[in-house]
Computed example of a mutant assay.
Amino acid sequence: MPDSYRRIVLASRPRGAVTPDNFRLETVATPVLQDGELLVRNHYLSLDPYMRGRMSAARSYAASQALDQTMIGGTVGEVVASRHAGFAVGDAVVGVLGWTELAVTDGAQLRKVDADKLPLSAYLGAVGMPGMAAWYGLNRIIKPRAGETIVVSAASGAVGSVVGQLARLQGCRVVGIAGGPAKCRYVIDELGFDACIDYKGGKLEADLAAATSDGVNGIFENVGGVMLDAALARTSAFGRVALCGLIGGFGGADMALHNARLLLINRLTVQGFIVTEHMELWDQGLTELAELVASGQVKYRETVTQGIAAAPEAFIGLLQGFNFGKQLVKLI
């Protein structure tokens, strides 16, 4: 067992855009395990947009990230020491152990995974929290029917990419919104979306209108602001909106909705959701996702940064849309 390990803590709360100065890299001593505890060596750290909201002291659906404590974050790794009856050395486990190379835990909210069936990294993406967000928002809120048109923002990201593929498997026409020609080509050619709008092309509303001439029945929203506004303008009567994220507002962009009147005119159902509030469905959703990924019916892509010291810059890049697919930090 190593005598020490490195972690990243929140050193200060951002004022506007996140900067490297908001974080601090520390080396700390490895604690002695007590009865009922285990030590996990993390292999991968997940970086996700929700972390930006947790860095703020503003009231939200969950407690703010504490200053001078390990940054919150999903992890997948291996048990390297155990005094816990439910976990053995060598077990592969997924949890929320944070931006840290090692972690001592009592095993609460830790889940064993099969490292032979899928790569460990997949359990932080398509078969992890992002995949579950896609599965829940699509199946429980949008409830798509074959032949309907679904619009997905951040379509090349960890959540949006899974949403579109699941909708296609259910017989829907899927239109993505992504940033740049390369991401749009990937969304269409690799993921099988029917169309993809490059919002950086300067013609978001016109291009989306051309791609959705028969209207939009469902919107899976990850960004908000102008993208949600453009999608609302294309909605048909009794459309459904699954509001998963509002990453577009993290940089101070205008999030006003000029087409809000369509919420009434088209009798839309809009529901925001936090996927961790629906843990009773995770076994079902993750089992389905694992089979789809293992069979190649759902594909995924990863952007992997090496080493815990690089996590802050990778996170800042994620908020700016630099990642392609799921953003991970490889720790070993």
Rank of each mutant, 00 (worst) to 15 (best):
V275D: 03
I332S: 04
V241I: 15
V175S: 02
N42G: 07
R52F: 06
R83W: 07
A108D: 06
I274Q: 05
T303H: 10
Q271F: 10
G202R: 09
H84G: 02
Y5S: 06
G321H: 01
T30N: 04
S64Y: 00
G202Y: 08
V9W: 08
N217W: 01
A294F: 09
L228W: 11
V175D: 02
V9H: 09
V329E: 00
E291V: 07
M132C: 01
T305N: 10
R240C: 14
L169R: 12
V275C: 11
P49D: 07
V216R: 14
V226N: 07
G90Y: 03
P130V: 01
G147S: 05
E221A: 01
P119V: 08
M55N: 06
V76P: 00
G98E: 06
I308S: 02
G201A: 12
G137A: 02
A58I: 01
G317M: 13
S12C: 10
R168E: 06
Q34W: 05
I150D: 00
N323I: 08
P130W: 11
V162A: 13
R41K: 15
G192F: 11
D254A: 14
S82D: 10
R15P: 14
F324G: 00
G160M: 06
S156Q: 07
L292S: 05
L208I: 13
R261I: 15
D189R: 12
P144I: 03
L38M: 15
V293N: 02
K183S: 11
F87I: 07
T149N: 06
P119Q: 14
E26P: 03
A88M: 10
A233T: 02
D116M: 04
D21Y: 10
P119M: 12
Q327D: 01
V293L: 12
D283Q: 13
L263I: 08
A294P: 01
E78C: 12
K299S: 12
H84Q: 07
V18E: 00
V94Q: 05
P144H: 01
D194M: 10
E302I: 05
L204F: 08
K299G: 01
M55Y: 11
G164F: 08
I247H: 03
C172N: 11
G164P: 03
K112A: 14
